[in-house]
Design a binder for these strands. Structure first.
Lengths: 223, 223
DNA sequence: CAGACGACTACACCTGTGTGTAATATCCGT
DNA sequence: ACGGATATTACACACAGGTGTAGTCGTCTG
């Protein structure tokens, strides 16, 4: 599968700065990364960063836009390609972000990059549409909602990369780590943690709670 | 289920500062949050923050320690309680973190709070141990690995709270949002996206790839 | 060739913020 | 009541880093 990353040498200065910013923001976070550091990593002066992007915030916005555009490209490209060999589309999309994963993780957790997430949800929906056709029982909720939560879950591993790697005892970018992760995902995605009966029962319990006034859960909602 | 949060009024100044720091770090991030801002939120002078915690970093460490200790307490408490009414233990543990969720999300994504994650994995393992007894076929991977990935997935929704809420069209802390989310989780956790046959086939394919020299995947591992 | 414009640099400025210090208030044991 | 520890404050320092300005170089165009 194609990646978003590009070779640094061929890039224009503007692109090199954006690339460096993506990496620095990802590694150190937006605040801790400095314009001077980004400039140095890109091999330019700090003034040039300002010249091209105006401000640090605008530079970050440009980074977001770049990733969104890249995801769009990737999405259309995937639509044309043969079969999804991966467990789910989000996982493969994520893998494609390559060195920009840390940036993406930070941006998403901070509530930024909403269009990017929504695009992924759209991809998931598309995937679910096909899966729903082979499904005997009616879904519990509409496709959008399931795609949203599914997308989030698919992002979990890249978001928590370091912790997952530690738990698995292998770097996820290594062949061994990737293999182990794939096997685990296969196991999880083929073994529901709830039986249909248990799920139905819990669902009924949920509806009962919902229809009960003075629900104890609501008493904590304030802040 | 119990929560970690405490009423602000009764707290000692030190605890109030820690509480305010947890919230400010969560809302604005570690760098952007200021000691002066935390002090103001806690109703004390900025000097007192330094007096009690020494430095900003040390304050953050104290926040981590506090959450870890709280999780421990919660864990033992849960061990004594009757039945887990939630879909999975991570989700309920997460719900318990209440107003500190944003802090936790940032800390985890930045690779911090490893002991906290590991503790959650341990809880998941415990839960899996029981689930494995009712399982006919042998798992694809050891329990630790599955618990790790499962923990990550369970954390996905709180980590991406804002995006999930947007996709679901409801605030997750509202009764409606929580209900919708629970229903979706029920659906997902009772409907595997892979049939046992498909999983077995993909697993076999994975093993085949693994044993193939000059695996195309490895050619991208550098950088 | 002249002028203009964009790429790019060097440098000064200034605010925000973590940190250090000294002084004051409050509590507690004897 | 007294002395010391602890809690708490006010204020000054230092510096990092975003921003602003002016200037140089190279290239294109008429």
């Amino acid at each position: 599968m194609a990646r978003i990353e590009a070779e640094p040498e061929d890039l224009t200065a503007r692109a090199r700065i954006r690339d460096a910013a993506l990496r620095q923001f990802g590694e150190h976070g937006f605040e801790r990364a400095t314009i001077r550091g980004i400039a140095e990593a890109a091999g330019v002066s700090s003034g040039l960063v300002r010249h091209h992007f105006g401000s640090k915030e605008a530079l970050r916005d440009a980074c977001d836009e770049f990733l969104i555009a890249s995801l769009h490209r990737l999405n259309e490209q995937a639509r044309a390609e043969p079969a999804p060999t991966e467990v789910n589309p989000v996982a493969s999309a994520q893998a494609a972000f390559g060195p920009y994963q840390p940036y993406l993780a930070r941006a998403l957790v901070e509530g930024r990059a909403a269009p990017l997430f929504d695009e992924m949800v759209r991809m998931s929906e598309q995937w679910l549409e096909e899966a729903d056709r082979n499904r005997p029982d009616p879904p519990f909720a509409d496709r959008r909602a399931r795609a949203t939560v599914g997308t989030a879950m698919g992002l979990a591993v890249p978001l928590l990369q370091q912790h997952v790697a530690r738990g698995l005892g292998a770097d996820l970018s290594s062949p061994e780590g990737a293999h182990l992760l794939a096997v685990v995902l296969l196991d999880i995605h083929s073994h529901p943690i709830l039986s249909p009966e248990a799920a139905a029962e819990m669902r009924a319990a949920l509806e009962r709670i919902r229809d009960t006034p003075t629900d104890p859960r609501t008493r904590r909602s304030a802040t």
